[in-house]
């Protein structure tokens, strides 16, 4: 480990069990654990030609490189999550050397401990609710069978076209309203099983599957590990109650969405955790 930089995946509490010998991380190198006064940073050596400031900037614009790096990073965090509750770092947190990492652990010690306290014993589950894509002639979410059947023939006249459009619009509005009701209820129910919850912006963009339809809910829940099964069962019980809607669950993740400082005060600059309400009842 010569002039390589240090890529940091996550921070956790010692003693973290040794990771699988075959686990490789970013840059193909196996991660190491760096301990400093009650905190462990999980790091990999990475070459400066790729992870120095300028080359890194360039790489981040390359979706293939970005995807590969993100997956390698997530691989390591997921492995850690089986033996501890790691505090994941954002992508591309890089230091010059070990002493740089130790200095960081020293400086950030209080904040890191606070967050680790909060996430200890928990995992994150992601939940998304999708409203199915409308049928080709805009008849809404497709759960109104008769409307779909009727529109399979071409409109017979201009007035017929308008009539169908009106019906289609009404159906779509209704489907959206029902989806909204379902999502609110689901979020409320799931929040009761979670120490904390986050509503993320609805998912869209070029990485979203075209056939997914419209994202109604995109949320994350910090759930005590031992409640995960009940949490998932609750979601499972909604099946059959929500025509036209699809619920997608991802996880268990490390607590990516819950890494804000529980003690954050208002900061004038948009710092991490600023302007975010305190989560109230933490376990």
């Amino acid at each position: 480990m010569n002039d390589d930089l240090r890529y940091v995946y996550a921070v956790c509490r010692p003693p973290a069990a040794p990771l699988h010998a075959d686990l490789t991380g970013v840059g193909g190198a196996p991660p190491r654990q760096l301990t400093h006064e009650g905190l462990v940073a999980v790091v990999s050596p990475v070459p400066e030609r790729d992870f120095g400031r300028e080359p890194l900037r360039a790489h981040l614009e390359d979706l293939r490189w970005l995807a590969e790096t993100a997956r390698a990073h997530q691989n390591v965090v997921a492995a850690l999550a089986t033996v501890t509750c790691p505090l994941p770092l954002r992508l591309a947190t890089v230091f010059h050397d070990d002493s740089g990492v130790r200095a960081m652990l020293e400086d950030e010690s209080e904040r890191l401990h606070r967050i680790l306290d909060r996430i200890d014993g928990h995992v994150e589950w992601g939940v998304k609710v999708w409203l199915g894509a409308a049928s080709a002639d805009g008849d809404g979410s497709g759960d109104s069978g008769s409307a779909a059947a009727a529109s399979s023939r071409a409109p017979r006249s201009g007035r017929d076209y308008l009539r169908r459009r009106r019906a289609g619009n009404a159906a779509r509005e209704e489907a959206l309203a029902r989806a909204d009701v379902f999502a609110r209820r689901l979020h409320g129910d799931l929040s009761r099983y979670a120490a904390d919850a986050r509503l993320h912006p609805v998912q869209s963009g070029p990485l979203t599957d075209a056939g997914s339809g419209r994202n109604i809910l995109n949320s994350a829940y910090l759930v005590p590990r031992t409640w995960s099964e009940e949490f998932l069962e609750l979601i499972g019980r909604t099946e059959g109650t929500r025509p036209g809607l699809r619920v997608e669950v991802t996880g268990p993740w490390a607590a990516y969405s819950f890494t804000d400082d529980p003690d954050a005060r208002e900061e004038p600059h948009g710092g991490e955790g600023a302007a975010r309400q305190d989560a109230g009842g933490t376990p």
Binding site: G158, R159, D160, Y161, L162, R165
Partner: peptide
């Protein structure tokens, strides 16, 4: 345009002939 047309269709302010022509054009 379609939204506007449907709104006016719903409100009944178009004649049958207008409805037919607007609808056909949109189609």
């Amino acid at each position: 345009m379609e939204r506007q047309a449907v709104r006016r269709f719903e409100s009944g302010e178009l004649t049958e002939d207008q409805e037919e022509r607007v609808g056909m054009t949109l189609m």
